[in-house]
Simulated assay, not measured.
Amino acid sequence: MENITNKFENIVKYVYEAGYLKHLKRAGWSMLGIPAPESVAEHTFRTAILGYMLASLEGADPQKTATICLFHDIPEARIGDLHRVARRYIDAKEGEAEAFAEQMQRLPEEAAKHVTALFRDYEEGLSQEGVLAKDADLLECLVQAREYQVQGYAGVSDWIEGCYKGLRSASAKQLADVFLRVDPQEWWKGLKK
């Protein structure tokens, strides 16, 4: 009975740790003076949606892509969200790898194997889904920057340009073009009674 209890307690600890991402703010936006930037969990949520959509458009597996997106920033619960200036001095990849390996020790063996394969696919772009998950991550950052831009934060153009340059799939580039053209408030216009 002790092993079953430990297994469930470890899963619970992992889920609590993932929940911490709801409180962890994306660090780069603070450099622009954005007083209440999005959390890592908020970023992850929309990244998963974008991953699903990109995979649908590109003929890849939407579920696999969205699942990769869900796990792509889990190590940040331990190392934080390091902005590009911090990454100049700190090897984030090494820290993420170490944090991720320790996090996987909490999961049942089969789940850990599966999540590790998804994480590796994201990091190394081993499949079309891994490449699209990376595109979704960049595209979500571009979308968030666009929303901040419309709110009057002028310094986000550097984020928009950098994310756009990193996109690899045709669908991600086409979506980015539309995101940059359409006002973020457009979705609700005409829906009010």
Rank of each mutant, 00 (worst) to 15 (best):
N3G: 07
N3F: 07
N6R: 15
K7I: 04
K7F: 03
F8M: 12
E9Q: 14
N10F: 05
G19L: 02
L24E: 02
R26F: 12
R26N: 11
R26S: 12
I34Y: 13
P35M: 02
S39T: 15
H43V: 08
F45R: 05
R46Q: 07
R46W: 10
T47M: 12
Y52G: 00
M53S: 11
S56I: 00
E58A: 12
D61V: 10
P62W: 02
Q63N: 12
K64Y: 02
K64V: 10
I68M: 02
C69A: 15
F71P: 00
H72C: 06
I74Q: 09
A77Y: 01
R78I: 01
R78G: 09
I79C: 15
G80F: 04
G80L: 04
D81H: 15
R84Y: 11
R88T: 11
I90N: 04
D91F: 08
K93Q: 11
E94L: 11
G95D: 01
A97Y: 08
E98T: 14
A101H: 14
A101E: 13
Q103E: 08
Q103F: 11
E109C: 06
E110H: 13
A112V: 10
H114T: 13
L118G: 08
E124N: 12
L126M: 13
Q128K: 15
E129T: 08
G130S: 08
G130L: 02
V131T: 14
V131I: 15
L132K: 06
D135Q: 08
A136F: 03
D137H: 13
A145N: 02
A145V: 00
A145M: 02
R146I: 00
G152W: 05
G152Q: 05
E161H: 10
Y164K: 12
L167P: 09
L167A: 09
R168L: 10
S171K: 10
K173N: 12
D177W: 06
P184C: 05
P184T: 03
Q185A: 15
Q185W: 10
Q185T: 07
W187G: 07
K192R: 14
